[in-house]
Simulated scan of single mutants.
Amino acid sequence: MKALIGLAAAAILALTAGGIKAALPGAQTGHDSAEGKTTQVRVTAVVDGDTIRVETRGGRQLGRVRLLGIDAPEVAHPPEPAECYSDQATDLLEELAPVGSTVELVTDTAQPNRDRYDRLLRYVDHDGHDVAREFLARGAARRFEADQALAREESYSAAADDAQGAERGLWGTC
């Protein structure tokens, strides 16, 4: 019984510490128990404000990756014009996950592997920072409401609420 209580206490401590770290403004990424496999890949292109193209470090193309948890303004898809703040969002993704850089793709066990456009759905971490969380903190994207809560839900919601309240990025422009 004592061992079981010790294990439960250790698990709670680990989850709490990870949750606190992930919720701090500007915090580096913290791996939650709902986060799954991590894979290092190279960015080959930035498609728009919430999608990149990647390849393995060995050069095998993996296709498009949609950043979990955000919805950036859409670029132009003629005949539809670009949405307000789409250029800034695309530029920010090019800054935070530059072409040629190595990033970590992290799965979320509560989320599907791919979306309806066959894009991989992943958290994208670069240099120890969560790219989507930074987008939300700068007001460059809105929260994307998934069917199941994200492993990084708490820090994403806090970042989005803070940016909207301060009218940063698209909240003050569009």
Rank of each mutant, 00 (worst) to 15 (best):
Y117S: 03
D118W: 08
D118A: 13
D118H: 10
R119K: 15
R119M: 03
R119L: 04
R119F: 00
R119T: 09
L120I: 13
L120Q: 11
L120W: 13
L120S: 10
L120V: 00
L120M: 12
L120H: 10
L121H: 15
L121A: 07
L121V: 06
Y123T: 02
Y123Q: 04
V124N: 12
V124T: 13
V124D: 06
V124H: 05
D125Q: 05
D125S: 05
D125H: 09
D125E: 13
D125C: 07
D125K: 03
D125I: 13
H126K: 05
H126M: 01
H126T: 02
H126R: 13
H126C: 07
H126Y: 10
D127Y: 03
D127S: 03
D127G: 10
D127A: 09
G128I: 00
H129K: 09
H129V: 00
H129I: 01
H129E: 14
D130A: 10
V131C: 09
V131S: 11
A132F: 09
A132W: 02
A132Y: 01
R133H: 04
R133E: 14
R133Q: 15
R133N: 14
R133M: 00
E134A: 10
E134V: 02
E134F: 01
E134P: 00
F135T: 10
F135R: 13
L136R: 12
L136Q: 06
L136I: 05
A137P: 07
A137C: 11
A137I: 01
A137V: 05
A137Q: 06
R138V: 00
R138P: 02
G139V: 00
G139K: 11
G139L: 06
A140E: 03
A140R: 01
A140W: 04
A140T: 12
A141G: 09
A141T: 02
R142N: 10
R142C: 07
R142G: 06
R142V: 05
R142D: 14
R142M: 06
R143F: 06
F144V: 03
F144I: 01
F144A: 10
F144R: 06
F144W: 14
E145W: 11
E145H: 12
E145N: 10
E145I: 05
E145Q: 15
A146Q: 13
A146H: 15
D147I: 09
D147M: 01
D147H: 11
D147N: 15
D147T: 11
D147A: 09
Q148K: 12
Q148F: 00
Q148D: 12
A149G: 13
A149R: 14
A149E: 03
A149Q: 08
A149Y: 06
L150D: 06
L150V: 00
A151T: 02
A151C: 06
A151F: 08
A151R: 09
A151P: 01
A151N: 07
R152F: 02
R152G: 00
R152Y: 14
E153D: 12
E153Y: 06
E153M: 01
E154F: 12
E154Q: 15
E154A: 09
S155M: 02
S155A: 14
Y156T: 05
Y156S: 04
S157T: 09
S157A: 13
